[in-house]
Simulated scan of single mutants.
Amino acid sequence: MKRLGLAATLAAVLALLPATARADTTYPDPLPLTGQQIIHDPTVHHLKNGRYVAYSTGGIIGARLSTDMRRWDDAGNAFTEPPGWWYEYNDKADPWAPDLSYRDGRYWLYYAVSSWGTNHSAIGVATSRTGMPGTWTDHGKVFTSEKTDPWNAIDPAIVRADGKLWMSFGSYWTGIRMVELNPKTGKAIPGATVHHLATRPDAPYAVEGPSIVKHGRYYYLFASYDACCQGVNSTYKIRVGRSTKVTGPYVDSTGKPLLEGGGDLLLAGHGRYVGTGGESVFRDKGKDWLAYHYYDAEDNGTPKLGLNRLGWKADGWPSLP
């Protein structure tokens, strides 16, 4: 058989690959930002007072404020001091991965308290009329996990579906789970079923940080896969699957279940933007946005805020234009 040149061989190989595999090799850079960009596990919201707020892991739930979603300023913390019960789960009262939402005339801030490498964890909730830093009233535990549980109660994310309120959560320990909440208290319904949404085939089941949104007739589950929190050595990436029911089953565009390790790759590290993950999705002025952190390879691996427009293809799957 005639021997092909390198370029021709590469072209022949690429022609045999599915289109999605080719598309996954390039990713858009995040929106150019200024000001205080250092952040981890961001949740972003456009408040009714006109300001944008981003809450995050670090401090007593660190806060950033912006008037245009481009320049961000340090705004202290959500809380002036940590609630006492946090010390049951972390000796430094260090909260993680908040989730901000609005309903029934109040802002609701969910967050996790745990320690690295254990599933002795708790998710808490606080409310505020304005959503601004320093205005939050804590209401205690929403849902907990212990070392005997096959899940980890961290990384909460709230979604409403079919008249009910749901919270997805999870990190390692068999992956992403979901539980129904009481809409009046914002806390888990006692004895509610803990649904299983996504996992990896093998231990340590490296998937965490869910975010669920509805588009069209589908619910879309975004999650962070692989290793976080290692600076320029982080391998975090964002994958997505969808389901017609909020409780699943979720599948990727090939039909592979997320409970079997499936998930379309939406965003991975590229160039200076390493370890993209810790994501959340928010809507502003009729447009959807993806918020996440990345580790800046040109700034010693400092974690920074990433923002990208979230688009939707004709077949309903999300894309980053």
Rank of each mutant, 00 (worst) to 15 (best):
L181W: 03
G186S: 07
I176P: 01
I189H: 00
G216R: 06
M178E: 06
G163S: 04
A206K: 05
S171F: 11
G209K: 12
S211H: 10
E180G: 01
L197C: 06
I176A: 03
G163T: 09
T174F: 10
W173N: 12
K187P: 05
H215R: 15
D202I: 13
D162F: 00
G216L: 13
G175W: 06
A203V: 15
S211W: 14
K164F: 00
Y205N: 13
E180K: 01
G186I: 06
V179H: 06
H215S: 04
S168N: 12
K164T: 08
M178L: 15
G170H: 06
R200S: 12
P201C: 07
P190I: 07
T199S: 10
D202M: 03
N182G: 01
P190S: 09
T199I: 08
G163F: 01
L165Y: 01
Y172A: 08
M167F: 09
A192R: 09
T199V: 06
V194D: 02
G175H: 01
S171R: 06
P183A: 04
G175P: 00
A198G: 12
Y205L: 09
V194W: 04
Y172L: 02
Y172M: 01
V207E: 13
N182K: 05
K164C: 11
R200M: 14
T174M: 12
Y172W: 11
K184D: 10
A192C: 10
R177W: 00
I189W: 00
D202K: 13
H215E: 12
G209E: 12
E208P: 11
A203Q: 11
V194I: 15
E180I: 08
K187T: 13
G191L: 04
G209R: 04
V207T: 14
G175Y: 07
S171E: 02
T199K: 11
G191S: 05
F169P: 05
K214E: 15
Y172H: 11
Y172P: 00
R177Y: 06
P190C: 08
H196F: 07
A198K: 03
Y172K: 08
K164N: 02
P190Y: 02
T174W: 05
T174R: 10
K184C: 01
T185R: 03
D162V: 02
N182P: 07
A206T: 12
T185M: 04
A203R: 14
G191A: 03
F169E: 10
K184F: 08
K187N: 07
K164W: 02
G209Q: 09
T185F: 01
P204T: 11
E208M: 12
K214H: 14
S168Y: 07
